[in-house]
Design a protein around this nucleic acid. Sequence first.
RNA 1: GCCCCUAUCGUCUAGAGGCCUAGGACAUCAGCCUUUCAAGCUGAAGAUCAGGGGUUCGAAUCCCCUUGGGGGCACCA
Length: 485
Amino acid sequence: MQSEPEVTVRLRFAPSPTGYPHLGNIRTALFNWLFARHHNGKFILRIEDTDVTRRVEGAVETILDSLRWLGLNWDEGPYFQSQRLPIYREIVHKLLDEGQVYLCYCSPQRLEKMRQEQIKRKQPPKYDRRCRDLTQRERTQLEAMGVTPVIRFKTPLAGETTFLDLIHGLVTFKNDTLDDFILLKSDGYPTYHLANVIDDHLMAISHVLRADEWLSSTPRHVLLYQALNWQAPQFAHLPMILGPDRAKLSKRHGATTITEYQKQGYLADAMVNFLALLGWSLDDHTELLSREDLIKHFSLERVGKTAAIFNKDKLEWMNGVYLRALSLGEFVQQAMPFLDRDLPETVKRPLDNDYVSQVLSLIQERAKTLADVPQLASFFFDDVQYDAGLLLSKKRDAKSAAKAMTIASQKLEEITTWDATTIEDVLRPLATKLNLSTGELFGLLRIAITGRTAAPPLFQTMAILGKGKCLERINKALQLLSGLC
RNA sequence: GCCCCUAUCGUCUAGAGGCCUAGGACAUCAGCCUUUCAAGCUGAAGAUCAGGGGUUCGAAUCCCCUUGGGGGCACCA
């Protein structure tokens, strides 16, 4: 027996509710989830709401909705850091007693000015440690002036900090390039650095999978773990997802909130599959992987190091693949809300499930997203509207078009069994008789019936639409044609 | 300015010294199928593996430098 139960694997997704989650955030969540599930571990959700000023209304709900939509179920949480303030304070005060941190009374204004000057002198902007060695007297004085201090970490002045990143390997930072970062803000809230270290330890997180942007703050965290005499978790910094302009994804360039993709008609499974392939791959040819496949095969060794620009075309393609793989029943179920939402108000609700099902059997392989469905299927529900000129072509003047349609109409009228085969049996020979190519005749009818030049197969369309509607529309086309004669 | 990460087709990627005259996918183009569209199938084009030095019998793969890209340097996460 060499397989031990890996009960110690505990991963967390720790978003901050300062905005709505985008592709990059969720990709991080997905990798954490996949890693946890692969190792039969736990996936924990923690909300890092320690910035009161940047809190965004509804962000937490959107985060939860996003995870639920994609099926990234969590085992614990959500924990809220704002509810754990006493824990952070207690620990940071212990550090204060030990002299590993110190009170800093510098005003934000002074710090800002200091930074400006450093930048002007082409120096790296770093806190100048003015308060690091204050005497008790000086402290009392400042305190008396009513200055609320922050607590800073006493970063070692020399030496270096090295840690093993599971994706990047060993990474080393010289300690003198780090400054004395703030642990506790003057409003009593911890900074990210403090809270994430404490919580990851207290929540027994075994692996921290987060975006690459955190790599440079990891030495601070490592130093903190050392100061607290705690064992640091394993780190793995994931490649970032960049916008089309190659810059970090942000609201600025329309970093779409993940739930927006749901509204745009993407399937959760397709999204998960697609996201998994942004920075991870199974081999040199597998593109389509089910959730189970992903869990089974996911590993950090196969996570890449280079940032990726997300390719919407490929997402669309993949969504189409997933859409087509659905059973008709599932497709109907998924598409129904979109029909409800986007079909013109004049279309009677509720939509008839049977009819919708027939219609969608023709739409399914033509839709790339569920949001395409109403538009692709609209003529099945609503009257057709088109430019009469469409009925004409180089080889087809108004007169011959009218003639063709009149005869077609008569022939169709005679049909008693209204199904696709019968309709085809009637119309196909008619083309020859009228000395038209099948394309010509069917194209003409297609416009009359659907109002467009590109539509699902004509005979099936007509069969579903029903005899009455078809004849009615041919009639309408005839009227339009008479106006052109 | 300093620090860190990184570098294979337009994009996502395979490649862990010889299997690579670099493979797959999306997108693009062409053909087939066909009543249009879509789907499907076939094929094409597309990467001097950023550049330059090494190491080696042999490098996309290892090392160094340069360059490019990204990230970080807040009482934001």
